[in-house]
Design a protein around this nucleic acid. Structure first.
Lengths: 364, 364
DNA sequence: TTGCACCATTGCAACGATGCACCAAACTAG
DNA sequence: CTAGTTTGGTGCATCGTTGCAATGGTGCAA
């Protein structure tokens, strides 16, 4: 069906071995003219080496895996694009998988990828334990855990790449405190994942610096059916935020500022505030996390914590490549923790002077 | 490194051929107990067939390709997720590629995919001509063109799946006209792609039904450096919308309603209107297209045209599967054109009553 | 008893690329 | 002139799976 290395060899009047040598950069051991003849034949026939055959022989593959909670979340979509860009430049491609944050699916995907010859994977999972995928790592899979910080008990070969979530949340919280807010809320889904916990601890740390304790704050982590197993998927973050806003603002003493677990959630909170007739940016301040493309487009534009996605994607790819190509490089002695940045926009403002006792009448 | 079929055979006390027969559903020709022994051995050793080897032998692969303009656009991210869900159920996986709407990249990706044994691809490209990828189709690639309608000169084996863009734009425009708007604008990037043209023709058709002509409307298709080669990437749609809003609203006789080429663009327009101090939903009505997750979260929530993504993804997968599995099925006599749906939210409202500079109806 | 059909099971030659080990020819040194 | 070395290129076994053709064993009819 396709043109093979034998046809190229025949066309160039050499043996398949020689063509293979050209293909694999062993051209120092042949006459320049031979190389040229082979290259001409390749071009003339439009030959491309058969990936599976190559991979069967060498055990190597030019495909990397990327497992994200859901590409429907623009944050992951953007990350996927950056990772793909980095991979593409080096001749790699990226196979995308949606885990929906389900450990079983994560594991299933990694096993399928392994069986397909994929030897390097970025796993975007911030579960505290990566036990379910460790067998694969033991077998030789190069794994980068993204959006997750190193945990005690992690195997040494595991590389974590993440933003410093505690610092990020602290930046966000301090920003609100400096604006005069004293009654804050922290809105997230369940706190099982390590990055959510880290963000929460950053929130607490900032409060303490201002002489407040967590008692002065409200923590909202999913009111509806909040059992152990439940969790909001990535698509439901907006709903989560909306529900949180509804509850918190309907309360007797509503917070004047909210730190959201991420931008999708923050946008949901803004929508919920709008539903309740509360003006975001004046009556209520909201800070997100991630700085997705749409943060700047929201009304009002969202104050948020920016993650340096391009740098993170480059680092993830560099490690994966080193791993699958056999160079056991460990650039930063293991993991990478980048510093996030506060981006101030319109969704935060000075604390209202007069306590808004009750939310005002609804619009429309 | 990994468990092979030979080890399974040894473990079960049979030949590799028998294991292969079990694996490929040829178990009708063997003793039930043999099959059980083999299955037990597979389970005991945790065996998974080696994808590349299998693929080398059979020429078939369980990976499908998906080429989108950019996963950073939530519309494509959501579509990718739906397609992956459909594929997963049938044991297929999806390899994701970002074309950035560049025909050269589209072609490059399809060739790489072909060389990797991928025989079915969804190409999200709405270029009028698919000439650049036709050679691959001739070689046997099953191709679904998504978000593109059939064009004269398309090869018969090509399947197009799209929403009826003309109807969608007409629904949007009629909605605005029924609200009393008479000075409308249509904002898009360059009109080179077929779906954008179709949307524009739907816009025109609606105007005509109300006795207006395109002369009464403003068409804005990218003011800055709008040469033949330039185009806005998917990430730039918001910027495009914003620029359009700035220009249109700064004009002496601004439109009272805008039909945007898609939701990202519409959100940009809303942001631009906010910048200009124009209230969306009262002073200015805006309609988007796609109904991305965030449309409902915007302030005000975006009136838009919903694309039935799950159904479209299912159809795309069904066709791809039929193609790669050799069943030359053609479910709908070729292409599929789905009907979009108008979703009315807060970004549209009655035309403002007082208009000092009201445009009068004009006929030619 | 022989021939034949039938059965579960297996041997074997691919699929396409790779890269080590080998070889023939040309050159160099003594 | 021979032995040794270098240069430029090739033969071949191999990766793991597949599925056709072939195996030998059994039962049955003639």
């Amino acid at each position: 069906m396709s043109v093979t290395i034998h046809q190229v060899a025949a066309e160039a009047g050499v043996s398949p071995s020689t063509v293979s040598n050209v293909l694999n950069g062993r051209s120092d051991r042949m006459l320049p003219q031979t190389r040229e003849r082979v290259e001409a034949a390749i071009a003339r026939l439009g030959y491309r080496p058969n990936g599976p055959a190559r991979q069967l022989r060498t055990g190597r593959s030019h495909v990397l895996g990327l497992v994200v909670p859901s590409v429907a979340n623009p944050f992951w979509g953007t990350f996927a694009r950056h990772l793909e860009a980095a991979a593409l430049q080096a001749g790699y491609r990226v196979l995308l998988c949606n885990s929906e944050r389900d450990p079983g699916r994560e594991r299933g995907y990694l096993e399928e990828l392994w069986a397909d010859g994929v030897r390097g994977v970025v796993l975007c999972s911030s579960l505290p334990s990566l036990e379910h995928v460790l067998p694969l790592v033991d077998r030789g899979l190069t794994l980068v855990a993204f959006d997750r910080t190193a945990q005690a008990g992690d195997p040494p070969s595991l590389v974590n790449i993440s933003v410093d979530n505690a610092v990020g949340a602290e930046l966000a919280t301090r920003h609100l405190l400096e604006l005069g807010h004293r009654r804050l809320a922290f809105v997230s889904g369940s706190l099982r994942s390590v990055n959510r916990r880290a963000r929460f601890s950053g929130f607490e740390a900032a409060l303490e610096r201002f002489g407040l304790t967590a008692e002065d704050a409200v923590v909202w982590s999913g009111g509806v059916g909040n059992t152990d197993t439940d969790d909001y998927g990535d698509l439901d973050f907006p709903e989560l935020g909306r529900a949180a806003a509804r509850e918190l603002l309907g309360d007797g003493r509503p917070p004047t500022a909210i730190v959201a677990i991420n931008d999708m959630c923050a946008l949901g909170i803004c929508a919920g505030a709008r539903d309740a007739g509360v003006a975001v940016g004046t009556d209520l301040s909201v800070v997100g996390f991630d700085d997705i493309v749409l943060a700047d487009l929201a009304t009002p534009p969202l104050t948020t914590i920016r993650q340096p996605l391009p740098a993170m994607a480059d680092a993830a790819f560099a490690h994966l490549r080193a791993g699958v190509e056999g160079r056991a490089e460990r650039p930063n002695g293991g993991s990478l923790l980048l510093r996030p940045e506060l981006v101030v926009r319109g969704s935060t403002g000075p604390a209202p002077q007069v306590e808004p006792d009750r939310p005002r009448q609804r619009r429309r």
